[in-house]
Amino acid sequence: MIKELVVISGKGGTGKTTLMAALSSLATDKIMCDADVDAADLHLIMAPTVCAAHDFQGGRVAIHLPERCSSCGKCRDLCQWNAIREDFSIDAIACEGCGVCAYFCPEKAIDFPIKTCGQWFISDTRFGPMVHAALGVAEENSGKLVTQVRKEARRIAEEKGFSLIITDGPPGVGCPVIASLSGATAVLIVSEPTISGLHDMERVLKLCDHFRIPRMICVNKFDLNAGMTGKIEERAGSMGAAVVGKIPFDADFTKAMVHGLTLFEFNDRSNTAGEVKALFENVMRLLETSGSVKTSII
């Protein structure tokens, strides 16, 4: 059975992608998946060679055809998004793609074509294959694109007989995060010892429980504030989530990123590298057992 580990954080900037890249470099027989399609960064470390690029068609957009328009104003009355201007031209950014204006226009003066709102890629990297994507700027439907890249990663894993998918998830708790969680074997939540890190970890833990996904916690930069790390461990414990790693604050992470390297490629002899290896082992052990467990690891 293929296992999928999804790395999320709630709060942005806690070190998801950096840690995910380091963990991925330790795993064998795996495919990497970047599900943070909104602001994808994993490729900056993995330097993928794109083998196949595909357009992503996420939805439709209304386009005004002035030569047919009788200016009756019906579209403006019906549009819930205030996307139709005084002159009946359509604000593509405000348009939700519901098609109500096009459907009811008596003159058929609104076209409603499918639009390409991003691209997704199958690539090779020095750590094996990777599926990733780039959502067009200011586009919607990132949830659908997340589902697409995960589906593709799973297809390739099945084809190549891999046992593991490691997915870099988006921040937050909304649509793209929900799309990155469904059907995952387990979630690794990367938190940080700040009041925001604690607050956001709690929300994302509740999200995992809502969808009954097993979850574990890693406290990144744990030594920046011992008191807050204690609080995070306490809260994680009270919510039944195992703390599987505590990673020190280390300038090596930023230096490695600047060089486009994983932590281990930059320096694999440090104390931090040892902690990340221990994290990897703990995660893999829990991942092994969580395949058979339907509800959360407690």
Binding site: G12, G13, T17, D38, A39, D41, L44, I93, A94, L135, V137, A138, E139, E140, S142, P170, P171, G172, G174, P176, T254, M257, V258, G260
Partner: peptide, 26 residues
């Protein structure tokens, strides 16, 4: 964070966007 619909909805019709970044590749 991000660049898709939630961000656009938040910054739309504002007079100025102050972008906060850090000097790293990400």
């Amino acid at each position: 964070p991000g660049t898709s619909c939630p961000v656009i909805t938040a910054i739309k019709e504002t007079d100025f966007v102050l972008l906060v970044t850090e000097p790293t590749p990400f």
